[in-house]
Amino acid sequence: MSDLFFGLSTVFMVAGLFFAFASVVGVIRFPDVYTRLHASTKALSGGAMMILAGTAFRAAAAGHWPAMVKTLLIAAFLLATNPLASHAIARACYRHGIVPKGTVIDEYAEKIRGDRS
């Protein structure tokens, strides 16, 4: 049983490392702030969840239950706060006046103009 947990945790950690790497590459390569937020929030939430799941499995394999509960707490906290932080950044950017590059449709601009006038 503990061997199974050990192997699972290794798989999860390597997959999480891959997704963290992909999200950083996205942050570097995407054209503007809003698309970079996509990479930073979504890919990184998944990657961090996987690495923390690997940590939790490793703690369970060692039979250290409080550490496992604490790891799950960190995971839940990240899952709840990552989207909130990205909302705050996106909203602040738009209200500050940073125009997204190459948008096809922009229905938010009308609302902002309505608020200002």
């Binding site: 942050v27 702030v33 970079r36 990184l44 950044i89 950017c93 500050h96 940073i98």
Partner: peptide
């Protein structure tokens, strides 16, 4: 904001 996003990451 680019720097803020990167710092969050």
């Amino acid at each position: 904001p680019d720097r803020i996003v990167a710092a969050d990451t």
